[in-house]
Design a protein around this nucleic acid. Structure first.
Lengths: 248, 248
DNA sequence: CGACGTGTTGATCTCTCTCAATTAGAGTGG
DNA sequence: CCACTCTAATTGAGAGAGATCAACACGTCG
């Protein structure tokens, strides 16, 4: 339990996140059990796992997913630093989705009672949890709109834009150098409900049109307006300056 | 503001819902502003609406949806009595999805500060809100798995089963008489990411196989096991005896 | 009785999937 | 340094699930 670390949590410096009060930080710190690391590709939480812990993603990328019995996998959403994991399952309930590390990741682990403790000891933090949860749902809503109604080109455009802004908000370097983009085409495909082959062809097509480039795990957007139009994205939902507050 | 009504709230008698304490009920009552009714087909909350109120669905069915600029509509999930609406948008934020009444509906309307008041005045209720929100997300997750990975037949089977159990849990009459099923085929199609025509053909096919029947706005399941297998549904997630607690 | 909403069905069309093969890059071992 | 292996990206070709287009049936309602 590294108290110092909580105060110095690197996420707190990012402008996306509003700052918490000293008391709130202290409370969170007291509930933190430690840090857990996983290698890229590791299964963090298994589908149906009973005793899955409560995590906040401190560094790295991951994703939530569900699978059908024959192996078909749907990636529900991507998790970036600051995202909360494990809220879906209550005490003694099984996780309804798996979580897999996309890069090497560091999680802050919390006691199983943290959710309740936070509500009980700090209404503000409890409110934040509700808000974080609702905010994640709106990401999933947008994703559902993509998969249900957008064609391949629109889906990919929407994903690129959304992830670009989410990633950009979490990095300090200028976006001209691109943003982190650690997923391979199979993972993009699984998140969009497309086949690997069709994902590749569509991705290439957009790239040939000069809208973007993906290279060495980094994403460069050359024409955000065109992508935004191609994706038919309405508001600013889900990305941009959010009101997320880090839990650590 | 009908205080009596809260104590006598019909939803409280349903076994799906755990009972709240007298204090909790009183608290909720004090925050309730009144009831709002809409006709079937009415737009309850518009996409992008700024001042959307906070509702609990008291009677009737509704659905949340998002649309693309050319009119393509995705139904995100169906709302049944006891479901909470409007949590996604925080103060001064615009709603990111619309809500439409499927039948004549009655909502309990709450003050805009209710979310915060509930957290502040009753950690238990605050915790419940978080749980309700997370629970709704798990419904959306399951829906995303359907749209992303299941074929038409599997999607429809999954929807029929899920809605059957959700509806059954909210009615007192035996399920042999079927459950309420107020959506038309266009709405089913829009929720599953399928075209109207293909939805119709698939629905008919399953019906010819003797798995179910839809008649006069009621759903009868004749072969739950076959449907469950066809849908490749894993656990009990989302339906069955939930831990939802009514807010009113 | 005609208009309208909803359901039903047949006939094409096409977007996306599946199958298959090739290329490119990163290790790894000899 | 080169052969060998493995993973990820790429590209072509054929197949198919589901979309689109077009009629028609049926009940309700003013």
């Amino acid at each position: 339990m590294t108290v110092v670390f909580c105060v110095n949590c690197p996420l707190r410096r990012l402008p996306v996140f509003l700052s918490n009060s000293a008391e709130e930080i202290a409370l969170v710190q007291s509930l933190k059990q430690g840090e857990t690391r996983f290698k890229a590709g590791a299964l963090v939480i298994d589908e149906g796992q009973k005793d899955a812990p409560l995590y906040t993603l401190l560094a790295g990328w991951a994703f939530r997913f569900k699978t059908l019995s024959d192996g078909r996998r749907q990636i529900l959403n991507f998790l970036l630093p600051g995202d909360f994991i494990g809220i879906q399952q209550k005490t003694a309930d099984a996780a309804e989705h798996g979580v897999m590390a996309l890069t090497d990741v560091v999680f802050c682990a919390f006691k199983r009672t943290t959710l309740w403790d936070l509500h009980r000891l700090s209404p503000t933090m409890g409110f934040n949890i509700t808000w974080l949860t609702a905010n994640e749902e709106s990401l999933v809503d947008e994703q559902q709109l993509s998969i249900g109604k957008r064609n391949a080109q629109e889906r990919i455009s929407a994903l690129l834009i959304t992830l670009f802004f989410r990633a950009a908000a979490r990095q300090t370097e200028p976006v001209e150098n691109g943003t982190e983009f650690p997923m391979n085409q199979q993972e993009i495909a699984d998140s969009l409900g497309l086949s690997l082959v069709h994902t590749n062809k569509t991705l290439k097509k957009l790239e040939r049109q000069g809208l973007h480039r993906i290279q060495d795990g980094r994403l460069f957007l050359y024409d955000k307006v065109a992508l935004q139009e191609a994706a038919d994205i309405q508001g600013t939902s889900g990305y941009g300056r959010s009101r997320n507050r880090p839990l650590i």
